[in-house]
Simulated assay, not measured.
Amino acid sequence: MSGRFYRGELASYFEVDKLKRGKQGRVYLAKDQENENVVIKMSKRRFVPITTSSIELSKKINSQVPTSIDSIITEKEVLKTVTHPNIVKLRDTGVKDELPFIVTEYIQGPDLENVLNFYKTTLKKPRLPAQLCTKIGYDICKALEEVHSKGLYHGDVKPSNIVMQGKSSKLIDFGSSGQTDKAYEHYTGTPHFSAPEHIMGCPSAQSDIYSLGITLYTLLSGNTPFIGPALFVVQKQLTDEIPNIREHNSRVKPELSEIISKATRKRISERYESAEEMAEDLQAHLEVEEEELPLFDFEAEEREAVDKITRRFDYEVLKHQTYF
């Protein structure tokens, strides 16, 4: 598979290595014509041109469940619409072997799922520092502001869809995105991070806020609020309140705990009205100015270890990221 060429609408790319293979498609590391790293995400199923016959075929096989092609096309359209420093950049699009693909910037850094695992396994720390989590939350709120301003929602905010790059965080994987004014028949999110209304088919901007709140809860406690099989978690998300984060991490200040609690209320009317409002509270909670914030807020020997592994976060680590 390695060594294939991809001709996009704007440029050509040379495949270097396979990064990830999932249910919905494949992700490759590639080089552009300037020899810079890019990421190519490609659907698995063959691309069928939209014609009368293909629509009839779709009806016959009852193919209303989103496919990998739907995911790639959705991500392409969303990334064409949104532009923000905290959102992965779309570089190009194309079709190869009747399969649509997108080309995005290559982000040299770990996703938060990997960061949390690194804390647990290498540093023997059960969770991330609160100050770092607050900064991450602020960055993603700013990204969501841009998404929501276009009448869209992300649909799958979670640690593996947030990548750290230096002192900043970037939101990736928009394959589950949609319009905030539409109801959807099929659920495409991740149960452990999904709001009740999202699970029920009515995702909104406030659903992303809920998911971000669960993400911060996970980073600060080391685990999601509800642990178990998907169906069990779905039932819990629909009926049970999220436990107070201070029950699992007493170092979290009451102000930050309240931010997470407000973001994860079951009733939409009781949550933050916007990502901007949540960002304001997170910004107020930061104890130092952004430019003075260390990359990882803990002891010098631990910071040195993280700096080393961060420098090694080239495509070897990117292989373990979850894109689908």
Rank of each mutant, 00 (worst) to 15 (best):
C202T: 15
A195R: 04
G213D: 13
V233P: 00
P159E: 02
T215K: 04
L212W: 14
I227T: 14
I214V: 15
G228Q: 05
Y217E: 04
I162H: 14
T215Y: 05
L219I: 08
N161D: 06
G228T: 04
D181L: 14
Q165E: 15
Y187E: 00
S194F: 01
T190L: 07
P196Y: 08
I227H: 11
Q179G: 02
D156W: 00
D208Q: 12
I162C: 10
K182H: 08
L231R: 14
K170I: 08
L216P: 13
S168Q: 14
I172D: 02
G228Y: 01
T190N: 10
P225T: 07
D173T: 02
S221D: 04
V157T: 12
Q179K: 15
G189V: 07
D173E: 05
K170A: 10
L171M: 05
L231V: 15
E185D: 12
G213W: 09
E185H: 08
I214M: 13
P191M: 05
N161A: 03
L212Q: 13
F174W: 09
L216V: 10
Q206F: 08
V163E: 02
A205F: 01
Y217S: 00
K182W: 01
P159T: 03
T224H: 06
I209Q: 05
I162A: 08
S211K: 08
T180K: 11
E185F: 08
S168I: 13
I214D: 11
